[in-house]
Structures are given as C-alpha cells and as structure tokens.
C-alpha cells in the first residue's frame, strides 16, 4: 500500500510542474461553460422546467459534468498503448508492482491534482460568476462517495481498453470510440433526462450512467429520499466490482501475449 501511495504522490507532484498548461485547460473550461450557458439558456427560453429540471439544475449538471470530466478521464489506455508500443511496459513486469494497481495509483494522483487545479476553480466560477443556486439535500453528502466509485468505474473501463492494446496496435480508433460512447451515453454532455424515453430505459442498464449521471444527480436533485441514493450507490458498486473482475480476468489472458524485443 505504501509504495502505491508514493506513486500517487509522485504523479501529483509531476502534474504540478506543468502549470502553464492548466491555464489553457481552465480557459477551455470557462469557454465551454459559457457556450453551455448560452445554449441551455436558449433551450429554456420559453419554459421554466424541461424534463423535470430547471435551467439552474441543468446548467449545474452540465457545468459540473465538465469539471468531473477532467477528473475522471484517466488516459490510462493512451499511456498503456505508448508503453506497450515502445516496450517500456516490460519495466513494470520486473518490478514488484501490480500493473493495474500502478496505473490506478497514477490515475488517482492526477485526479487529486485536477481537483486542486481545475475542478475547484470551475466550482467557484459556477458559484460566483454564473451564480448557480445549489439545492440543499442529503445527496450533497453522498456525492463524494459516488464520485469516488465513478472514478473506479471510469478507470476500469480505460484500463480494459488499455489491455486490448496488447492485441491491437490501433488504439486511436478504440479509445476514441470508447471516449465518445462514454461521454455521450453517461450524461457527460447532456443530462440523461433529455434523452428519448426508450433510449433512457436502455441507458439505465449500462455502466456509463454510473460514471456521470449518478454523481451529478446527487448534486442537482439532492432533495430525494436516502433510499433512492443508496440504491444508486449500490448499482455503482455492482458495476465497479463487475468491471474490476473483468479487467483481472482479461489481464491474466493479455499478459501472456507480451513479447518485448529490446525495449
């Protein structure tokens, strides 16, 4: 455990070096927030509520969604691909670390770094520039737990695609397709409430909604009963465990195919 904590800390520190980059990431997010603000303002032009959400709730969902998006995007599949390609993946095999846990630790390090540098400024912006009103409710307390499980689900999906790189050298297409499917079908871009009902019913049976929709619902509609939220967290946990087992089984298979020449 201690060695992985050192990795978490290391990633956090490395990330802090590139501060100039964050200015652009924050600028990008501010522009995105502005575009989302005007877009939803014009959608809500003639109505107080749409699909059970007010403008404030929708904008909070979308705005916070963009902040969470930066947190939960681990890029593990992209890193693994480049390390499999140049052979440096072999270095992990000779070290006394577990590859999956190693990447989990680095992803967690960048999660912490992104909370400090991108998410907190975004939340402050939402509060003080866009003056979004939060509704007070039990959901707000459960939000951090839900976000943490969402991180695990997102990581396992990325790691799974990363493992596919052992078999295919074409990660661009795979990862891009995965990213689009995850962000669109998880509520990362549009609240799931706005999807056609038939599609919503299907989406609730997929793991993607557990990444963005669940934590965002806890923030935007926190005044529901505890049972509703506990059930949501339970579903998240089920997905996290299922995906964890899937990556373990896949890893045992995939690692057998590794052939590193030189490196």
């Amino acid at each position: 455990m201690r060695k992985y904590l050192a990795i978490v800390r290391g990633t956090y520190m490395i990330g802090m070096i590139y501060r100039l980059g964050f200015l652009f990431t924050i600028a990008g997010n501010v522009i995105y927030l502005g575009v989302a603000y005007y877009l939803w303002k014009s959608i809500f032009k003639n109505s107080e509520t749409l699909r059970g959400l007010t403008f404030d709730q929708t904008f909070l969902y979308v705005g916070l969604g963009s902040a969470i998006f930066i947190l939960l995007k681990t890029y593990t599949d992209w890193f693994m691909n480049s390390e499999i390609r140049d052979g440096s993946i072999a270095m992990y095999l000779v070290k006394p670390v577990d590859i999956g846990t190693y990447f989990l630790a680095t992803s967690f390090g960048s999660l912490l770094m992104n909370i400090t540098i991108v998410s907190i400024p975004t939340i402050l912006l939402l509060l003080f520039v866009f003056k979004v009103k939060f509704i007070i409710g039990i959901g707000l307390l459960l939000f951090p737990i839900s976000l943490l499980i969402a991180f695990f689900i997102s990581f396992f999906l990325d790691y799974f695609v990363g493992l596919v790189c052992f078999y295919s050298e074409s990660v661009w297409g795979l990862s891009t397709t995965k990213d689009i499917i995850v962000t669109l079908l998880s509520g990362g871009l549009i609240p799931l409430q706005f999807f056609p009902t038939a599609l919503q019913n299907i989406l609730h049976w997929l793991p993607f909604q557990a990444i963005y929709h669940t934590p965002l619902t806890m923030i935007t509609q926190p005044d529901q009963s505890v049972d509703v939220f506990l059930q949501m967290i339970f579903i998240q946990l089920v997905w996290a465990v299922l995906l964890f087992m899937a990556t373990r089984l896949f890893y045992i298979q995939a690692i057998k195919t590794v052939r590193v020449a030189g490196g």
């Binding site: 295919s168 661009w172 891009t176």
Partner: peptide
Amino acid sequence: YRSDFIISSVGMFFSSLA
C-alpha cells in the same frame, strides 16, 4: 495496417458525429 485503418475510421465516424 489495414485493421488499424478500419478501426480508426469507425472511431472517426463516431467522434465526428458526437
């Protein structure tokens, strides 16, 4: 790299329609 071309094209198709 024919399979790369096919998989990348699928990825491009999805990302351009997002």
